[in-house]
C-alpha cells in the first residue's frame, strides 16, 4: 500500500516496506510520477487533491496528520501543520481543529512574499535569519502590509537578514494566536524546514516543540496508518 498526499504545492508518497518508511516528494503536478505502476487499489490518498487522484480510500489532511504524528510522537497534544496555502492547528486532546485559509498570514504563502521580495529561494530564509544581530519589530500580520512594514525597516537601517528574522517573528506570533496551551506540540508541513521560523516559534510558544525528521511526509504516512488501523 502507499500513502499519497497531493497538496497545494507538493505531492508526497510513503511506503512501509518491512517496517521501514520510505518516501518520495515531488511538485503537485507531477504526482503521477509517484504512482507509476501502482494500482488504484493500493493507494490511500489525502491532501487537497485527495479525491481527484486514484485511490482505494481517502481521508482528510486533518485526520491524516493525527495518525501520522501519532506514529512518531504518541503523546503529542497539539499538531501545527503549516502548509503552502493554509495552516491547520489540531488539538488532539480536545478533538478540535482550526484552519486558517482566509489570509496568507501564518501560511507558507506569507514567507513566499518575503522570499520573492528579496529574490531569494524559500529555503534561504532560514539560513539568513540565523545571521541577524537584531530583530526589528514587525507588527502587521497581513502579508501585504507586512511587506510594506518590512520595507520601512530596511529604510530605517536594518539589514536584510534582520528584516527576514523580524518577518519570521511576525509569522510565529500569528501562528501562536491559533495554538492552544499545550505541553507538547508537533510541527509538520514543508514550511517547518525553515530554521529561522522554527526558532522564532520556539521562543514565542510555551510548551515543548517537536519536529519529525521529515515533517513534509507525515500526512502521507498518516493516510496509510489510518487505513491500516481500519483493517486491523
Amino acid at each position: 500500500m502507499i500513502g499519497l498526499d497531493v497538496g497545494s504545492t507538493t505531492a508526497k508518497a510513503v511506503r512501509i516496506v518491512n517496517g521501514e518508511i520510505t518516501y518520495e516528494i515531488t511538485g503537485t503536478h507531477n504526482w503521477k510520477d509517484l504512482i507509476k505502476g501502482v494500482d488504484k487499489e493500493e493507494i490511500i490518498s489525502t491532501g487537497y487533491f485527495r479525491k481527484s487522484v486514484p485511490h482505494k480510500a481517502n481521508v482528510t489532511e486533518i485526520t491524516a496528520a493525527i495518525y501520522g504524528v501519532r506514529h512518531c510522537y504518541p503523546d503529542a497534544d497539539v499538531i501545527v501543520d503549516i502548509g503552502g496555502q493554509d495552516t491547520k492547528v489540531i488539538d488532539v486532546t480536545k478533538n478540535n481543529f482550526t484552519i486558517n485559509d482566509k489570509c496568507s498570514a501564518g501560511t507558507g504563502a506569507f514567507l513566499e512574499f518575503v522570499a520573492n521580495y528579496f529574490k531569494l529561494e524559500l529555503e534561504e530564509l532560514g539560513t539568513l535569519h540565523l545571521k541577524a544581530k537584531a530583530i526589528p519589530e514587525i507588527n502587521n500580520t497581513c502579508g501585504v502590509f507586512a511587506v510594506s512594514e518590512m520595507i520601512s525597516q530596511l529604510v530605517a537601517g536594518y539589514s536584510k537578514e534582520e528584516v527576514i528574522a523580524g518577518m519570521h517573528y511576525a509569522f510565529a506570533r500569528r501562528i501562536s494566536f491559533m495554538v492552544p496551551e499545550a505541553e507538547t506540540l508537533v510541527l509538520i508541513g514543508g514550511t517547518v524546514k525553515n530554521k529561522g521560523m522554527v526558532s522564532a516559534l520556539r521562543e514565542i510558544i510555551r510548551g515543548k516543540i517537536m519536529i519529525p525528521d521529515e515533517p513534509q511526509v507525515i500526512n502521507a504516512l498518516g493516510a496509510l496508518k489510518y487505513y491500516n488501523q481500519d483493517i486491523e
Binding site: T60, E61, I62, T63, K94, N95, N96, F97, I99
Partner: peptide, 28 residues
C-alpha cells in the same frame, strides 16, 4: 462536545474549504 467553527462571508453553495472542515469533523 466537539465544536467546529465555520465562518462564511458571501452567499452561494457551500465552498470546498468548508466541505473539507465538515468532512474532517465527521471523521473526528
Amino acid at each position: 462536545c466537539p465544536v467546529l467553527t465555520i465562518q462564511g462571508d458571501m452567499p452561494g453553495k457551500t465552498p470546498e474549504q468548508v466541505k473539507l472542515r465538515l468532512e474532517a469533523f465527521g471523521e473526528m
